[in-house]
């Protein structure tokens, strides 16, 4: 029973990471109908930036905030420079650009920071076991951080004018343009936000899985699975899907398939969702006029 509870809590903790990345994916998918295959690599790159800043002597939370700002800038820059010219290009060309970004980011990391596996500091107290060893300090802290971030994102989109503008731009670009919303910049802001959210996920998972250029590849897979499970056009659903996938992964890993086939489990979830309920748990069936 203790074991089960522990797996459940660990599942929620990693689920928060998957939920964040899934949210980043869905934010971009909603407004452009493209999946950012480089999202994981961008997040890992941000984590390296955070590590560099911490090693340069900045306090943890200052480095954390600085990384978010830098990542936001990188996201906006990529959208403006790389994706804007591809706006009317084919799906294949867009996927190609994402793959190109993935290659550049991943190998640039190997080039700049080398391929050795690095430890990443955690700001949370990991010494004393909490609740009788049920949950580690880092798990609790990172879950709290991801929940706060998800809450902030919700508040931003629900209650601010800018958030409303971004939702409008994603929902109907041409109407938004007519009421004076600068759709292009809304897309760029969305990219920036997605990159920053990804950065938080990277920083929070790095103390657990250690930092190396491949760190987010598996996590991206789980985020895909989470986004699909929740509904790829529904941010709230994707977040819930991410948490669910985290729990499934931990329980499945502990009782069903073992840790060796964890990535296959993600693939299995994706295929099951596509077979049984392609719109996901909370997605809508999209009908388009021809």
């Amino acid at each position: 029973m203790q074991g089960l509870a522990h797996q459940l809590i660990a599942g929620i903790a990693t689920g928060g990471i998957y939920a964040s990345v899934a949210l980043a994916l869905v934010m971009i998918y909603q407004s452009t109908h493209h999946l950012n295959f480089a999202q994981g690599e961008m997040a890992t790159f941000s984590t390296y930036i955070a590590l560099t800043l911490i090693q340069a002597g900045l306090p943890y939370w200052v480095a954390f905030l600085a990384t978010l700002v830098i990542s936001f800038g990188i996201g906006v820059f990529i959208e403006r420079i790389m994706l804007r010219p591809m706006q009317n290009a084919s799906v294949l060309a867009n996927v190609g650009v994402f793959i190109g970004l993935l290659l550049v980011f991943r190998n640039a990391m190997g080039w700049i920071f080398d391929y050795t596996i690095k430890a990443f500091p955690t700001p949370f107290d990991t010494g004393t076991p909490l609740f009788g060893g049920l949950v580690s300090g880092h798990e609790l802290g990172s879950t709290a951080v991801t929940l706060v971030v998800l809450g902030l994102v919700y508040v931003f989109f629900r209650f601010t004018k800018l958030g409303l503008g971004m939702r409008a731009a994603a929902f109907n670009a041409s109407s938004s343009r007519l009421v004076g919303i600068r759709v292009g910049w809304m897309l760029a802001l969305g990219w920036g936000l997605a990159a920053a959210i990804g950065a938080i996920a990277g920083i929070m998972i790095a103390p657990v899985v250690f930092l190396e250029p491949n760190m987010m590849l598996g996590i991206l897979l789980y985020a895909f699975a989470g986004a699909l499970l929740g509904g790829i056009d529904n941010p709230g659903g994707a977040v819930l899907g991410g948490f669910l996938v985290g729990i499934i992964e931990n329980l499945g890993g502990a009782y069903l398939v073992g840790t060796e086939l964890k990535l296959t489990l993600a693939l299995g979830i994706i295929i099951c969702v596509l077979l049984v309920r392609p719109t996901g748990l909370f997605g809508r069936v999209v009908q388009s006029r021809v």
């Binding site: 290009a89 190609g96 650009v97 190109g100 993935l102 290659l103 550049v104 991943r106 190998n107 190997g110």
Partner: peptide, 15 residues
């Protein structure tokens, strides 16, 4: 690391 970076740049260049 160079092949990967060059691959990525060439891919984007061609696109």
């Amino acid at each position: 690391a160079a092949p990967g970076v060059i691959y990525g740049v060439i891919l984007i260049f061609f696109l």
